[in-house]
Design a protein around this nucleic acid. Structure first.
Lengths: 206, 206
DNA sequence: CCCGCAATTAACAAGACTGTTAAATATAAC
DNA sequence: GTTATATTTAACAGTCTTGTTAATTGCGGG
């Protein structure tokens, strides 16, 4: 008999997370979660009562991570374009570690209004702070004549679009689970990271 | 008794399409498709044999549409930036009519390797032609010193990223089904369209 | 050692879901 | 009108899935 006490709950959460991310809510079966976690499937209900409940636990963890990626550093008073480059690269690198999180969040956020509201409520304070800071920076640079007059909101969306889409494209163009493609994938992502920084900065420069 | 002969198959296809798009493959039940189509659920199997089969029919129709959006016009010899603007706007407008298609395709393409291969095989010839033409144009402009040296592939991905993400963001920020938001949604999308054109063009201009 | 509680298990219940079948009905051809 | 064929229906079978329950095991405190 193996030792499984203590952290059965954690194991279930981890397996559930990876399955939910891969297959979505409807595509994931609680029996499979239990099987892969190596525990009796009644235990899943013992700890989490319902599938929906378990999913919410998983979703909250992931939403927190996603929001974390977005809180791109915009503090300090380094030159504007340096800060911008650093922010884009940090956001991009954050996504590298969890390639398929954006897809997951989009898919599941759209599925249910409460989930969307929850996500947006997590997101808003963070986004607001970043936007405020970026807005100030842009205003200053515009006055100096070094940056085009643009809405901070659009810059933020552009960064998110270019970065996130790079990973969605990667998932479609490569088989991200197939280790054989690791090299080509890495080259592709590096090229995209460089491109995203350049595209944003060049689109702003005057 | 209502008259339902003739186009039962079409009705099923249409209902199936809207449900599959909304809820994904696993989230859609054949019984619900039949119920919403107002036909006996055995008919669904009579016409399409299996759920998988029905889904494939739906998917092929949608993949064709998606690829159509991508075949952004790059013919003729108008000035480069005019062609670029037109292409971005056409792609964007194509998506407006089917806001939630990109999400659907991404979600389902990732789910199954054969589906991904099918989609890529549809996509490649179109993308190749667009890329070849764009590559020629960029080369010419670079020689003239009017455009930065960039890979056509990256420009294409940037356009797709900015446009597609605008709709994903719209789906998250607004309730696209709620008619009440129609006004705000329209404003948001128009702003994004303008932004996407400007961002791409300014990022290329020298 | 034993009491009480948490963790675990097997068995089961109820319903959902996909797909089949055999019979009934409509339709078109002759 | 009869026959052949396409369409439609109700009923059902089998499996999958979620969730419950009651019994069992393990374990720490007294």
């Amino acid at each position: 008999m193996e030792v499984k006490n203590q952290n059965t709950e954690q194991i279930l959460l981890e397996v559930a997370e990876s399955l939910f991310i891969e297959k979505g809510f409807a595509g994931t079966k609680t029996t499979e979660i239990a099987r892969l976690a190596g525990v009796n499937h009644a235990l899943l209900h013992y700890y989490f009562r319902t599938k929906e409940n378990l999913f919410n636990c998983v979703f909250e963890r992931i939403a927190a991570q996603m929001v974390g990626f977005i809180s791109i550093a915009f503090e300090g008073d380094a030159p504007f374009f340096d800060k911008l480059q650093r922010a884009i690269e940090m956001h991009f690198d954050g996504l590298v570690t969890r390639i398929n999180l954006p897809m997951f969040v989009f898919r599941e956020v759209i599925r249910q209004k409460e989930r969307k509201d929850y996500f947006l409520n997590q997101l808003f304070p963070v986004a607001k702070r970043v936007l405020a800071r970026m807005h100030g920076d842009i205003k200053r640079e515009v006055k100096k004549g070094t940056v085009r007059p643009v809405k901070a909101q659009n810059v933020l969306l552009n960064i998110a679009a270019l970065n996130v889409f790079s990973f969605v494209a990667a998932e479609i163009l490569f088989d991200t689970k197939d280790k054989q493609n690791a090299g080509a994938l890495k080259v592709f992502l590096n090229d995209r990271k460089q491109n995203n920084v350049n595209t944003i900065i060049n689109s702003l420069k005057l």
